[in-house]
Design a protein around this nucleic acid. Sequence first.
RNA 1: GCGCCAGUAGCUCAGUGGAUAGAGCGCUACCCUGCGGAGGUAGAGGUCAGAGGUUCGAAUCCUCUCUGGCGUACCA
Length: 570
Amino acid sequence: MTENTTLRDRVGALVTEAAQAAIEAGSLPDIALPDEVIERPRDPANGDYASSLPLRLARSAMMPPLAIAEAIAAHLPAGEVIDAPRIAPPGFINLSLAEHFVQGEVDRIIEQGAAFANSSLGAGKRAQVEFVSANPTGPLHVGNGRGAAIGDTLASALGAAGYEVEREYYVNDAGTQTDVFTETLYARYQQQFGRDVSIPEGYPGEYMVDLAATLQEREGDRFLAAPGEPPAAGLRELGIELMVEQIRRTLTAFGTNYDRWFSERTLYEDSADGASSAYDTAIASLRENGHLAQREGALWLTSSELGEDKDNVVVRSDGRPTYFASDIAYHYDKFLGRGFDLVIDVWGADHHGHVSRVLVGTETVVGRADALHVLLYQLVTLKRGDEIVRLSKRGGEIITLDELVEEVGPDAARFFFLLRAPSSQMEFDLDLAVKQSNENPVFYIQYAHARLASILDRASTEGHTPDGGDVGLLTQPHELALVREMLRLSEVIEMVATTYEPQHLAHYGTELATSFHAFNDAFRQQGDPGLKVITDDPALTAARLRLVQAAKIALGRVLDLMGMTAPERM
RNA sequence: GCGCCAGUAGCUCAGUGGAUAGAGCGCUACCCUGCGGAGGUAGAGGUCAGAGGUUCGAAUCCUCUCUGGCGUACCA
């Protein structure tokens, strides 16, 4: 059994083997077994794992569930990992981890350290997570923060699950939004020099005034042209560059860093060695496959022949490619250009009308779309008390991500977003967010980590060390419960990496912290000075310090995966 | 109209077809005065929107209805 198999898979394999042994022994008929044979029971009284296999097989085996349970259990003797199985009506097989196994895992966790709970699910595969990717025409708002928290954590979880992961921001620096942005910027820029020019419709926000001021400060009047004439060359590029810089700073402050900022414009550029652009190649491929049609002066992807409800314009009648064309070229580049095995696009739900189109386009050009997953997160509704705040970059008022981070800090903001399933619409009460920042559950987790660190510190100053501690001395219920909780982490990581739902990690973190707090308080409640981590008994102290050390590793890992700090003190 | 996502405790939300539906906040009553109280235990609080269906078993899967958000561009 390899190091990177989850415990769940190990135990599940034992059940599958037992069932097969029962079939070979003739106590079960020769029937097909499902892949998933065990689950985590809700009630811990029913064991660490349980199998409902007997209930599910009853029909095809034509046997009563309890008889099947007995047939399987007979081949599931107590062993290295689990104790003897217990059969429970109407047909469950309940399994508990053996105490010595649980104890031994403490040593293993310490040995693995920061690699604890990694899995090999995605070993040898390259994954890309593209997220936020807001147009560089204004500052990020609170809703973008949700995408950032989700995408970043998902990328971390995929990494822990064995994938080689790249985080990417797709910079939309081509297209009409950029034109409007540049026009507005130039208008604001001219105003800086006292010209009476009107602001085009598009981006009325105050930040454009600041951006123009920055431009004037750094570049002087070199973009100024005669009234009514277009600005000097380079304004567009510099404006976008400044905006992207601002976005990058915002995300860094939020705790999110990218491997690559991908320029949309490069899709249209031939490579240095003379190879055609991604756009040209993708269009040629579509044409070759007979999926393009010239109609009404425009070039269409005949997607209705491919299961879509309508065709989509790829090249406008004025010759400019659409955003959709960029997206086809972009995904061509992701798969055929860069060879990712798994690509996840994290989009706000307001883009959901675009999903099936992109999947069809990708399938047409790449030949398959099963490796592309578009993860939609529902929009964040902002409230101040009872008043709903509209989020609109083009409408003017926005609550920026910077403001949120300023008020509640990056950790609390991230955790707030991570607690909710992407598919869940969430209400964000700005007043409450500030008021509750001290009650945010993230502090509950971080506090647990700080106390673990504190215990190790204290022990160290008193001359105690975890080294050489005998984990066999860990027999208190709260000690073993804490270890059991830690052992779930690899399963949670795999769940996040397969369902693309990071909220499981956030909830697990809370539960792990609860296990520690219960463990810690159990000693205190009993009022016996011998019932602490640091006791008069050096052997027991060392054993418990090992547990504390392992717990700190596990909790630190969870916080790290969520992109949050694991404080030594608070 | 059509399509996508949702509807679970007073509020904000978890819940991988399994056993008695959970957490945080708020409310009530306790514990501990600590190796850090940003803690622990217990309690009250539920028609899992509604109605059918599938299944040994449904908050979970299917159908319909109601409610909310979003989309339905030669914008991105």
